[in-house]
């Protein structure tokens, strides 16, 4: 369960998030949709304790990220990049992360297998392609077998097989009762997997609800999105 309550943030005097409020519930895939620079990544970074909000709270299972014990066993997160130092091998990277949360070394090889990187375990992260880097990032997120998944643009850089795999994986995770929150600017992609949709534009939540409700009378989610954000575009700050 993810609860974001009236989160605001200013960065170099610009208001980048304004009273952002939403929930992501267990057993459902929640899609966080918005154009580039709308505030998706900033919201996720605040949720994960990487950035600090000026006001408001962002909680995971009722607690701020920083108060979680062995956080990787509760939340798995995928941000941009692999999150691995280029000189370290994939296995060495996963092993230090595992050690940090008291997980056994064997988890490293298990998650490498889940994401299909078993054969590249001894390769240095700097030699990975974009798609492989993303898989390594996902492997890191899965180390603690978390009940909450937070993913920033998870299909970026994946090939068609990877995209399909990711879609199935996220649906299965939700079916097992996990909370899945993913951001994307790809509306078609989101319409395929999300149960609930939250649309953000210029730091404000424009609409949120079940996929069908958000799409409403519009033909597709994409049409709905443009109708909603175009209406917002003229609003003065």
């Amino acid at each position: 369960m993810i609860t974001i309550d009236r989160v605001s943030k200013t960065k170099s005097r610009t208001l980048i998030l304004h009273d952002v409020t939403f929930e992501a519930r267990p057993g459902r895939v929640t899609g966080f949709l918005g154009p580039n620079g709308a505030g998706k990544t900033s919201t996720l970074r605040i949720l994960l304790g990487l950035d600090r909000p000026q006001s408001g709270t962002a909680l995971i299972c009722g607690r701020p990220y920083g108060k979680l014990d062995r956080p990787l066993t509760t939340v798995g997160a995928l941000l941009d990049g692999s999150g691995a130092h280029r000189a370290r091998t994939a296995r060495a990277h996963l092993r230090w992360v595992a050690a940090s949360n008291g997980l056994p070394d064997s988890r490293a090889d298990e998650v490498l297998e889940v994401v299909g990187l078993t054969g590249d375990a001894r390769k240095r992260a700097g030699r990975f392609s974009l798609g492989m880097s993303r898989r390594l990032g996902l492997a890191t997120a899965l180390l603690g077998d978390p009940e909450v998944l937070v993913l920033d643009e998870p299909v970026n850089g994946l090939d068609p097989v990877g995209i399909r795999w990711m879609r199935t994986f996220l649906r299965d995770s939700a079916a097992q009762g996990r909370t899945v929150l993913l951001s994307s600017h790809l509306m078609g992609e989101l319409a395929e997997i999300a149960d609930d949709v939250i649309v953000i534009d210029k730091g404000r939540i424009v609409i949120q609800g079940r996929l069908a409700d958000v799409t409403g009378d519009h033909h597709t989610l994409e049409d709905a999105f443009f109708a909603l954000t175009a209406a917002e575009a003229d609003r003065p700050w």
Binding site: P71, H93, S100, N101, G126
Partner: peptide
């Protein structure tokens, strides 16, 4: 450095 390891570090040890 490249790869953004600091995110991994802070997610694991906030």
């Amino acid at each position: 450095q490249d790869g953004g390891q600091i995110h991994t570090t802070l997610l694991a040890m906030p």
